[in-house]
């Protein structure tokens, strides 16, 4: 390696600076020589994340524009918070927001604890064969699409469907469940639990499997029965897992999943079941109100982030948060 001539008047410090600079350059060069293939390998992945994740995130700025498709982002006029003001004075927005928030709340209250309870019940099953068979059955609906599950739900709840068949056995009149506003949100919550409860137990069962068996032995010595073991060992040991999943859930609080609602919704149930995602699809994608619907999406993300921030702070006070 040849040493570059160093001008005498710059003195000693400049000399070392040039040298370290050169060393860094050499290090980078030898690193690249050794690993350029890794950069080549990861390039498509990085391009994917930039184009389909970060570009749309940056594209959210059209919420502050009056976006016109032919002018693009550069050519469309900026309108400040006009879209948000429009939104907050628009009565339909509150209906959609209320529907979204209520369904989200019901899902949190009923849907979130369901896999925890199921995991505890699974854990009490002692026969391995029975446990495995039960698990296979419970995991199955996770792999069905919401179109299929929606079709099943409509079929089961139709006037001659299985549910009304059972009602008939008890001499009850058939009910048109899917067409009535009063049932919609319960159907959403129950079908959501039906589809995902089994799948949701996997992570909790892993948490239970990781509990030190000595804890149970010690508890038995102290005379704790099964119930006490569950209350004072199993559940507290699951707490960190529950907390992390709760926080991840809260961050996406208002994102209910387009597929489920879209496949259960009919115009007869719009007033109770139209949520942000279905509304954004109709008003944005179908009717071309891009800026206003992006403003809704941004509002949704901000709510999610604020909730995540608040609950993470609360969680950190007692135990530990996500960050």
């Amino acid at each position: 390696m040849s040493t570059a001539p160093v001008p005498a008047e710059q003195g000693q410090p400049a000399h070392t600076e040039a040298r370290t600079e050169r060393q860094t350059k050499n290090r980078i060069l030898s690193h690249l020589r050794k690993q350029w293939m890794l950069y080549l390998m990861i390039a498509p992945g990085i391009v994917y994340y930039i184009v389909f994740k970060y570009v749309p995130l940056a594209g959210s700025m059209i919420a502050f524009q009056n976006y016109q498709i032919f002018n693009g982002i550069q050519g469309s006029p900026w309108v400040g918070f006009d879209n948000f003001i429009y939104l907050f004075t628009y009565p339909d927005f509150y209906i959609v927001l209320r529907n979204t928030a209520l369904i989200a709340l019901y899902q949190l209250v009923f849907g979130f604890p369901a896999p925890i309870i199921l995991a505890l019940l699974f854990n009490e099953v002692r026969l391995m064969l029975a446990k495995r068979t039960l698990q296979s059955l419970f995991y199955l609906p996770h792999f069905l699409s919401w179109v299929v599950v929606g079709g099943i739900v409509f079929e089961l709840l139709s006037s001659q469907g299985m549910v009304n068949q059972l009602r008939g056995l008890f001499g009850l009149e058939p009910i048109l469940f899917m067409q009535q506003e009063g049932f919609f949100r319960s159907i959403v919550v129950v079908s959501g639990i039906w589809k995902e409860v089994g799948w949701g137990t996997i992570i909790y069962l892993a948490a239970i499997a990781g509990i030190n068996p000595n804890l149970y032995e010690a508890a038995v010595m102290d005379g704790a029965n099964r119930w006490k073991q569950i209350m004072y060992i199993t559940i507290p040991s699951m707490a960190p897992t529950i907390l992390v999943l709760f926080l991840l859930n809260i961050g996406n609080f208002l994102e209910l999943g387009f597929d489920q609602i879209y496949n259960l919704l009919t115009p007869m149930t719009y007033s109770v079941g139209d949520i942000i995602e279905t509304y954004v699809y109709r008003a944005g994608v179908l009717q071309g109100q891009y800026s206003v619907t992006t403003a809704i999406g941004l509002f949704q993300s901000v709510i999610g982030f604020v909730l995540l921030y608040i609950f993470n702070r609360l969680a950190r006070k007692s135990e530990q948060g996500l960050w």
């Binding site: 594209g59 994102e255 891009y290 619907t293």
Partner: peptide, 16 residues
């Protein structure tokens, strides 16, 4: 970060 901040539907649609 992209797992926490989902790309919103409309800008994603416009990008594609």
């Amino acid at each position: 970060i992209t797992m926490i901040f989902n790309a919103p539907m409309i800008p994603f649609f416009l990008t594609v």
